[in-house]
Design a protein around this nucleic acid. Structure first.
Lengths: 182, 182
DNA sequence: ATTGTGAGTAAGTGTTACTTACCTTATTCG
DNA sequence: CGAATAAGGTAAGTAACACTTACTCACAAT
């Protein structure tokens, strides 16, 4: 998994060969298949590990806030931060695993759903308490937030550019909460 | 290309074999390589064709609107509509091509950039005329809009669910322009 | 009549993910 | 203790796949 992560920093999943993974890990190809069903499972395992850290980190941060809008702001900031701090994880999550249907039956995807569920809960509570407009569709607000976060990261991941987390994070929050129209 | 599109509706790029493409098109495998450098170029060509239609369709629609906010609303609606109407194209654009760096040097990507450029221009004009808040960062607003659109389509593309374009479209516009905070 | 070109094919080839059968070193437990 | 069993590891395959090569045929232009 360490060897695979290392290679993942350089190239995409498909162009990493099992021979290469084995060579990097200083074992034989056959051994990979003693621990992983196939190459994809290795990918999912790496994702799983990274995602676990991501998840716990964010949940700790949310707990510190009480207002719904603040919680969502923390989610936006922390997500961007985590994506930026962990390019390999981001690349796997945003580019690689999605085009294989069996990912959506994996444990890693279960964690993604939990993360999404958390966001939805916060939004729904915000509407209840009156912090958010009652005409806001919770599912769509979540789509906008998640979409904005992911899109913001994509360019930086693909082209390896730097990302100003503070700027992007407050920018997204501003638009999503206050609107762009005068 | 027709055969490939057909197969693309059923499965992902990687699980489509050249043998299968040839069989569907009723030619031999070798012939594919008379017209396309490799399997990826075939993919990019299919995308290119679809994207051209997409682009012209949207540009015609924008031309009818004068207000910046209305133009952006049309972009959001038309993009969702085009994605929904053309699942294969969407799947290729949002899931397949992105994980290969050479896509970003293709002609198809040039079109994506043009589309993105159009959106940025509208936003910048909107800020100039005072329709949009002057503190709005044009690049970030574009990220939010594009991210929301793509994220909204992803679930529907991956799981083949139906998408209520009107609802999602007005939902996104509402949040992006008026904000979710009371 | 000859030459060149575009459409098409059959039969390869190298690479790649994955398998099999086997070996060696720990660990468990009667 | 010692035998059985499991865990860690390997070398040498195999089938499938993307892509290549060397060839044929039709037919238009010079």
């Amino acid at each position: 998994m360490k060897a695979f992560s290392l290679l993942m920093a350089e190239k995409d999943f498909h162009s990493i060969t099992t021979a290469e993974i084995a060579r990097t890990a200083q074992v034989t190809e056959g051994l990979i298949y003693k621990y992983f069903k196939d190459k994809k499972e290795l990918l999912y395992q790496v994702l799983n590990d990274h995602f676990f850290e991501f998840q716990t980190h964010i949940e700790n941060r949310i707990a510190n806030e009480k207002a719904c809008v603040e919680k969502l702001k923390v989610i936006i900031f922390s997500s961007l931060e985590s994506y930026a701090a962990n390019r390999i994880f981001s690349k796997i999550l945003l580019l690689e695993v999605r085009n294989s249907l069996d990912f959506f039956e994996s444990g890693a995807y279960e964690m993604v759903r939990e993360y999404a569920r958390t966001i939805l809960d916060i939004i729904e509570k915000g509407i209840e308490t009156g912090e958010l407009k009652s005409e806001t569709d919770p599912h769509i607000l979540r789509k906008v937030i998640l979409g904005a976060i992911e899109h913001a990261c994509l360019g930086e991941i693909i082209f390896g550019r730097q990302l100003d987390i503070d700027e992007v994070s407050t920018g997204i929050s501003n638009i999503v909460f206050n609107g762009a129209k005068r």
